[in-house]
Design a protein around this nucleic acid. Structure first.
Lengths: 151, 151
DNA sequence: TATTGTTATACTCTATAACTATA
DNA sequence: TATAGTTATAGAGTATAACAATA
């Protein structure tokens, strides 16, 4: 083994990126938020929370999805009352997708659940380790081999 | 913000788990290894590298996939010469899936690429930071809110 | 002419069920 | 009877192409 640190990180990341890991995470995070919120629709909710009202085409570019895909997912969220469509006053071709109050609540609940779950796991860690981990993970994500993210 | 460390980690993980991130990673890692190796078939290759010759049902349990899904993915890998089927001498019902030399080479190349990419990113880090990150990430994956992994 | 949102089509992947063979 | 591998079927999700409307 020539580069043990690289292999160690690679193995850990392999676990994190697995389908079953993601499925478990999304299931836990979106539990009880209604059928409309799942692994597929959450990126739309989350993206809109970040950008504010946005067209399907713009949001698609932001989160790395085709605009036809955004339209379909937005349909489900609109039906569930988490999102509404409104004309774009600045462009007659566009329709803005905007979170409703319920939509904002769902995003916030999800974010809080994740952060809380992480905090609980880190409760047994020395505080310096927890803070170091947050700092190093952030740095790794920003400049690491996977950087340049969208979606 | 009540728990900034939890939110920091949550945000970073959110980026890592994104579809576009995974797609980029898998594309880079499996480039040039033949059409058969992609995001779908790699877990089968990687699982067999870990377990050795294994039945479709056992491998499915190991990596969190249905045995019918394993069969289909194994078909593609077998056609590409990365995997072969052989009868299980211990159980007449079972067929063992086993990596060929080409299959082992493909797995090793992928693992090496990932580890190398990570090492290169970490080259500018203080060595103590890199080692601390590897240790903390491993711990987080093992005991964190996402633990209990398969697939 | 280019871009908007949306819909229709073809394609891929998946789980469920069903089949045969073996424990 | 239970489990093995495989195949058939049905369902979900996607990208591509096409549409009318607006820039």
């Amino acid at each position: 083994m020539k580069n043990p640190t690289g292999h160690d990180i690679a193995d850990a990341l392999g676990l994190l990126l697995r389908r079953s890991t993601r499925a478990r995470v999304y299931t836990r995070l979106t539990e009880g938020l209604g059928e409309a919120v799942d692994e597929l629709t959450y990126p739309v909710l989350s993206g809109l929370a970040r950008t504010g009202p946005y067209s399907a085409a713009d949001l698609g570019r932001e989160i790395g999805l085709d605009r036809t895909t955004v339209t379909r997912r937005a349909d489900r969220l609109e039906q569930a009352g988490l999102l509404r469509r409104q004309p774009d006053p600045a462009d007659g071709r566009a329709t803005l997708l905007a979170l409703t109050d319920d939509g904002r609540t769902a995003v916030e609940a999800t974010r809080q659940r994740l952060a809380t779950g992480i905090e609980e796991s880190l409760a047994t860690w020395p505080q310096a380790d927890a803070q170091a981990f947050a700092r190093l993970l952030r740095r790794f994500v920003d400049e690491g081999p996977f950087a340049a993210g969208q979606d």
